[in-house]
Amino acid sequence: MNKERFQGLELLATAVVVSNPDGVVLYANLSAETLLEVSRRSLDGQALAALFVEATAFREFLRKSQLDPFGVKRQVFELIRPSGTAEHVHVTLSCPDGAHGATIMELREIEQQLKVDREARMMDQSLANKELIRNLAHEIKNPLGGIRGAAQLLEVELPSPELKEYTQVVIKESDRLQTLVDRLLAPHRKPHIVSMMNIHEVCERVRSVILAEHPKGLKFIRDYDTSIPEFLGDLEQLIQAILNIVRNAAQALAPKIADGTAQITLCTRVVRRVTLNRKQHRLALDLQVIDNGPGIPEEIMERIFFPLVSGREGGSGLGLTLAQTFVQQHEGIIECSSTPGKTLFKVTLPLQFDHATS
């Protein structure tokens, strides 16, 4: 069989397996090899039904698909993997030539589909938040200068120091709001300066800042993959993004820092064939920030990246919002999972080495 006609399927992030009319594998793309945890050489000549726990049900599913050459059949089956891990997948069959031609089978991990949907919702929500923040910040900023200026002029005219205390309250609160607005607008003001950078320089800069703030009681564990190459990114933006995440972790660890048991782990790895925001990338950086703190309250877990949402008394609720904005400007994503004793923030960034690479 001439397999060259299937080479275009190598570019797909979706696992695709092609079989003959008897349901025997003729070809599998690289994504299928990864999903099934079996080499393509081992798949050649194997029955499609042997890939699934429900082999009899799959054979019936295949038979019905071949009877309807103009239709596309979908069903959920459980894979058989050498590692023994269970995985339910969406199976889509199409038989354009009916029972006498090849069958094209697509496999999609249910969890992967949920992840894609979740990323899409996060991106839509982030864009809406960004537009809301910009408009709101500008609406606050314009009258704020006038309020502060009027308070200063009024202060000059007031005869007694006691009355001037009230104008000082107005001026100080105006300055506090101005600082808040400036932080909201910061990601949209600074240009995105891209150059070759090292992720471990980012981690070490962040680590040194946090240790300066907490010189005692906090232990950092560095689990670095030093083979990760330099890649294109905005060094200052990524330092700020990771600093915001790690600083949040340190603040949540305050009781453990006091008794000397606080711990933050910085872990870097390379992951392959990653889909971010509906776009596939050959290589990506996986940076994890793990702390042994009390965990994020369940009632705010789904909203931690929203502006002005904070689980800490006196927190501004902007740190994670800004971190997410900076990471998204690098076409990446931040994910979080949390239980008492372990909170994990995972930053995934596509590794780009030149402006033409995706």
Rank of each mutant, 00 (worst) to 15 (best):
S208N: 14
L158G: 07
V309W: 04
D68V: 05
P215K: 12
L322A: 13
G311V: 07
G149Y: 05
V194A: 00
A55Y: 05
Q152G: 01
A254T: 14
E162Q: 14
Q352A: 11
F70K: 15
L320W: 08
S227E: 13
R273I: 01
G332S: 05
H138D: 11
R134H: 07
G84T: 02
S338M: 10
V17A: 06
I140R: 07
A137G: 09
T348C: 02
R41K: 13
Q251S: 05
R118P: 00
A323Q: 12
V91S: 02
L320N: 09
I242H: 09
G23W: 09
L211M: 13
G101S: 04
A28Y: 02
R222I: 04
Q352H: 12
P96M: 06
A252D: 05
L67S: 15
P96N: 09
A102N: 06
K346W: 00
L67R: 12
L163A: 15
T261D: 11
K216M: 13
V246M: 04
I300D: 09
D182S: 15
T325F: 03
G341A: 10
E173W: 08
K3S: 06
H100Q: 08
V194R: 00
R222V: 05
N244M: 07
L67F: 05
K164L: 08
D175L: 15
P82C: 03
E331S: 11
P215R: 13
S208Y: 07
E60Q: 14
R278L: 13
D354T: 11
L11T: 10
P159C: 08
R247L: 09
G145T: 07
E155H: 08
K73D: 08
V202F: 07
V169A: 09
L163N: 09
T179D: 13
Q251D: 09
S337E: 14
R205S: 14
R176H: 14
A86L: 04
R278A: 15
N129W: 12
E119V: 00
I296M: 08
E37G: 00
N142G: 02
G293E: 08
S31Y: 03
L283C: 03
